[in-house]
Amino acid sequence: MTETSERPIIAIPMGDPAGIGPEITVKALSKGEIYEVCRPIMIGNKEVMNQAIGFAGLDLYLNTVANPSEGKYQHGTIDIIHSDNVDIQKLQVGEVQAMCGQAAFDYIKTSIEFANAGIVDAIATTPINKESLKAANVPYIGHTEMLAGLTGVDDPLTMFEVHSLRIFFLTRHLSLKDAIGQITAKRVYDYLHRCTAALNLLGIDNPKIAVAGLNPHSGEHGLFGREEVDEIEPGVKNACKDGIHAFGPVPADSVFHQALHGKYDAVLSLYHDQGHIAAKMTDFERTISITNGLPFLRTSVDHGTAFDIAGTGIAASVSMEEAIKLAAKYAKQFRAAQKA
């Protein structure tokens, strides 16, 4: 095992107490390999975590600490910074509750404060629920918006990593019609620069980035669709003039396969489902989200609170394990690159 001081400290906010976040976290932290690569610190509620340990049928000890520096970081023990913000008697597992939305926000806020102060090296987040956040009048709809608002970052950059495939997104939560309207030469150019900078922070020098095509066969030079000719190609060419190693547009039916097998270091997907489908068909459970452009590294599972199975003990922890491992993988390089 790596020396304790060399293993990065990864903060794990518990997520929505009524969802599967607590369960998948205790299951992930029951695995010895997690402690071989990092020092995980939970930010959450100890009563809810003990309940999750019961759901999962595990034999784990909760060690309550006031600061990450006090953690034992030993397999079999979960170090937790306790927040007394959940009434366990009123908690309804699998249900939308304002109490849970507020609690989930509190855990993330605390994690961000630790990360901003350099007390933890990265954050690996668990699922939260948009309806619960709304019920609590939390002024953010999801993780990305919280991270942006609480760090002052205008437009965080989302990247998926699954096996050797990395995917960035030019647009996210927009209708397909509105997303197409956002595909401009300037936006493609800007994102290629941002994607390159993000990959540099993760230790990837001179990355090769392919831009996915929008239309079938990338429009066949304007035969069916002008977006590639009028917007995407000019954006790619302008980025290349600046020394960015960009390629495309490359037909979307082949570019993700090519990147998975090493032809490109990353793909810039043009809209939400284009990249999501490619990643999740590669390996649904191991598709992990990285939020770039923040003052710290953040990884996350890419699934929801799964209220329908919360409390049953059957939730799989593979995604949570991968999110923690990926945070540990990149944390040291990310910090070093920021200081350089």
Rank of each mutant, 00 (worst) to 15 (best):
N129A: 08
I112R: 02
G118A: 08
E145I: 02
E113A: 13
D106I: 10
I141A: 12
A115G: 01
K109I: 00
N116E: 11
I123D: 06
D121Y: 03
G142T: 04
A124R: 01
F114W: 15
K130Q: 09
A135Y: 05
N116V: 03
P127G: 07
T144V: 09
I119C: 00
I128L: 09
P127M: 11
L133V: 11
A117W: 02
A115D: 00
I112A: 01
T125C: 11
A124M: 09
E113L: 04
I119W: 01
G142H: 14
E131Y: 12
N129M: 07
Y107P: 02
A124P: 02
G101A: 13
E131S: 13
I112S: 01
P139R: 06
I141E: 10
N116F: 00
H143C: 08
H143L: 10
F114S: 01
S132W: 06
M146Q: 07
E131V: 05
P127C: 07
K109F: 09
T144C: 09
S132D: 06
P127T: 10
V138P: 03
N116H: 09
T125N: 06
G101Y: 04
T126W: 04
Q102D: 13
N137E: 14
A117V: 04
A117Q: 14
S111Y: 01
L133E: 05
V138E: 03
S111V: 02
M146G: 07
T144K: 09
K134A: 15
F114Y: 15
M146F: 11
A115V: 01
E145W: 03
K130G: 06
I141N: 10
A115S: 05
S132H: 08
E113D: 15
N129W: 04
A103P: 13
G101N: 08
K109S: 14
S132L: 07
A104M: 13
M146I: 15
A103S: 15
T110M: 15
D106R: 03
N129H: 14
A103N: 13
L133R: 05
D106Y: 05
A122F: 03
F105V: 03
A117E: 14
K109N: 14
M146V: 13
P139A: 11
P139C: 11
I112Q: 01
I123Q: 05
A104F: 11
T125M: 06
A124T: 03
I123Y: 07
F105C: 13
A135F: 05
K109M: 07
N116M: 14
A136W: 09
I141Y: 04
A135G: 04
V120H: 00
L133F: 14
D121R: 02
F114A: 00
D121G: 03
P127Q: 09
M146A: 08
